[in-house]
Design a protein around this nucleic acid. Structure first.
Lengths: 239, 239
DNA sequence: AAAAACAGTTTGGTATGACAAAAAAAGGCG
DNA sequence: CGCCTTTTTTTGTCATACCAAACTGTTTTT
């Protein structure tokens, strides 16, 4: 059942090195944006073999603390929500490939945004409202340009993620759009469909203006459910 | 018949090997629960050096496809939501260490559960309701045993994550409790506080029974806000 | 016979040295 | 000063070696 006592089986040398480097990145000894020292330098500084250094660097890369391209020196990244969410990438892609994976992720998005519109209806500031108004206007202006419409569509939803002052939320939005864009961009988008979506956005915005959380949630659910239907019709099965 | 590793320029050999092994895991050539072949065997099968094999295995471990303990053979894991979420671990820990990190994560939890209780109020089946009732009874019975109370507390919340039929949600709940338990368990818990929490659960349950989504959300928010206050009072600052 | 102790074999973790190819740095030239 | 060529680093990969921990089969003990 619950794992008994699993404890310090001799830590690998690479793990120790990772811990040290991680700390040096956090306290700024290794500056963000700068490349890591050469492997041979790290090697002699910490008195370990290059094998260990390479494994440690690779771990840092896997955790998103450094960005490493083949043959280039790994570059220290700013630790933050962005890097954190990006490292989830490979896992998410695997989830999306599983049966019902896209559906599950989309449902999570609906659930989260349902909460967000309610929050927006109750707590959106004047700045948020004008931002949404602007995004809505851009949205309307781009009805005939499906590519740009998609961008303004995202812009509108993004504002919902900015209303609660939680630094993780905008990154989550970015993640959603990133992982779902693959399916999204393959869909046929015409002006009529764009118009429908614009009108849905419009209804959501008006409900938020009226501070009517129930109406806002209803409008959003209808909007996203319709969007899901579009996806499903495009792909025939339940991806 | 050894597939020689095709090496697109600019792609590391280890990456190619990872791709192959990943596929072998997916199609069952490498059975779930079984250990990977010895490094030296992989090495000769794919005609690469052990260095490359080790880097590939490490990558698989970082992606949660295999579970590797030092000095033991890596074991193939079932790819799924559980493994996926677990791989986020190191990133989340970094987020929690950031200023306001715990607060951000807790707010996400509140937001998500707010949506969940609304959903439960509208769509909970008889099974879910009886499950909640049972969890609630256990909860009441354990008011004097803070450790067990904590467990029944989790059990109650977990049911909320089971109402929508989304396989990712229970895993998310597990992740929340796992990452927040560090702070949670350090808090002083007495019978009075447990009683308060039990009563809050009780109110939530009753609201769900009455199919009153608004009341359920309100009760849940009060409950979790109070819980957050407990955390903040314990730690003095905003962790 | 089951359990414990033992010895020999495998296997992962680490170190060292080497080399080709790509990148970075240095130098030379216009 | 900027562009091109040459030299020096540096990474990616390989081969080899050693040790200690884990594994396996066998023997001894209970």
């Amino acid at each position: 059942m619950t794992d008994p006592i699993r404890q310090n089986v001799s830590e690998r040398a690479a793990d120790s090195l990772v811990t040290i480097l991680e700390q040096q990145i956090n306290d700024g000894t290794l500056a963000v944006g700068q490349p890591l020292p050469p492997e041979r330098e790290i090697m002699e500084v910490f008195a370990v073999s290059r094998t260990v250094v390479r494994e440690a660097v690779q771990m840092l890369a896997a955790r998103g603390l450094v960005e490493s391209r083949p043959r280039f020196r790994p570059i220290v990244r700013k630790p933050g929500y962005e890097a954190a969410i990006e490292t989830v990438g490979s896992s998410i892609n695997r989830l999306l490939a599983m049966p019902g994976g896209v559906r599950s992720l989309f449902e999570l998005r609906i659930m989260m945004e349902a909460s967000l519109v309610r929050d927006a209806a109750l707590h959106a500031t004047k700045d948020h409202l004008t931002g949404m108004q602007r995004a809505l206007a851009d949205n309307e202006a781009m009805i005939d340009d499906s590519q740009r419409f998609y961008e303004t569509d995202n812009a509108f939803h993004r504002i919902l993620y900015e209303v609660p002052d939680n630094p993780a939320l905008p990154q989550i939005h970015k993640a959603y759009t990133h992982w779902l864009s693959g399916h999204w961009l393959k869909m046929p988008r015409d002006a009529a469909r764009n118009l429908t979506n614009y009108q849905a956005h419009s209804r959501i915005f008006e409900s938020i203006l009226m501070r009517d959380a129930d109406a806002a949630e209803t409008a959003l659910r209808e909007h996203l459910d319709a969007a899901w239907d579009q996806v499903r019709q495009t792909f025939g099965h339940q991806p």
